[in-house]
């Protein structure tokens, strides 16, 4: 089930200039994402998947067009406004986990909570809940460098959900994992979507990863080709 409109991209374009050459990734891209959706974006390498995710996450700005989130425009926010917006609304999951190597697992999970007004006690409670959810309560004090890839990605998931954001953005979350572990992670994302109502946008080029999503978009040469799974 999907609810109201969360994202609305209106005529978004993105291009880079490399020396004298102008590389256009998107030109007049239109799409919307509803609340509660689990969207998989697929496409060949270099098709602009990461660039799109960066635009959605507000870490990069479109060259043209508008991006609306929850009925307010976000592409024209200042850098510090965007930082605040990200902290409040989005959880990020990366291919290579991107954990802080000098912190243990629970402190990695606590990191986004430093951006909230929660007390130390409340932070601790939220961290414990997130660790519980990803099944790592017994590893809370472990250094992430001593963990397997799957465990590290679970720590990253806990970090992404600890501040209870509406939306989770994942860039190739299983790209560095074996099949079995990848399925575990994907099931976990599915659970977050189904049971906790998180909207998830996941970039992947793993075809079976798409099986966990509600909707798949194929990105090719800056254009979407939609294929409905329920066919």
């Amino acid at each position: 089930m999907t609810g109201g409109k969360l994202y609305d991209l209106r005529g978004v374009s993105k291009s880079f200039t490399k020396g004298k050459e102008k590389i256009t990734i998107f030109n007049d891209l239109n799409m919307s994402i509803s609340e509660g959706d689990f969207l998989a974006i697929m496409g060949p390498s270099g098709s602009g998947k990461t660039t799109l995710l960066n635009l959605l996450g507000g870490v990069d700005k479109p060259t043209g067009g508008e991006i609306w989130f929850d009925d307010s425009r976000v592409d024209n926010l200042s850098e510090s406004q965007l930082a605040k917006w990200r902290a409040n609304n989005i959880g990020f999951i990366f291919q290579f986990y991107n954990l802080m190597p000098m912190l243990n697992a629970e402190r990695n999970v606590e990191l986004p909570l430093l951006l909230t007004k929660l007390s130390a006690k409340e932070r601790k409670k939220n961290v414990a809940a997130a660790m519980e959810l990803v099944g790592l309560s017994d590893r809370a004090k472990h250094m992430t460098s001593e963990m397997s890839g799957g465990q590290q990605q679970r720590v990253a998931i806990a970090r992404a959900i600890v501040s209870d954001p509406k939306l989770i953005l994942c860039d190739e979350p299983t790209g560095d994992l074996d099949r079995k572990t990848a399925d575990e992670i994907l099931s976990m994302l599915q659970l977050l979507n189904r049971e906790f109502g998180k909207t998830i946008v996941m970039v992947t080029h793993d075809p079976s990863a798409a099986n966990y999503a509600k909707r798949v978009l194929h990105l090719d040469k800056g254009e979407f080709v939609e294929k409905d799974l329920v066919a």
């Binding site: 996450g57 510090s80 990200r86 990020f92 990366f94 802080m100 951006l115």
Partner: peptide
């Protein structure tokens, strides 16, 4: 560099 990028992504203000 990468870690600082991640911190910023999570929403840590540059200042």
């Amino acid at each position: 560099t990468g870690e600082i990028g991640v911190m910023k992504t999570l929403g840590f203000p540059s200042q």
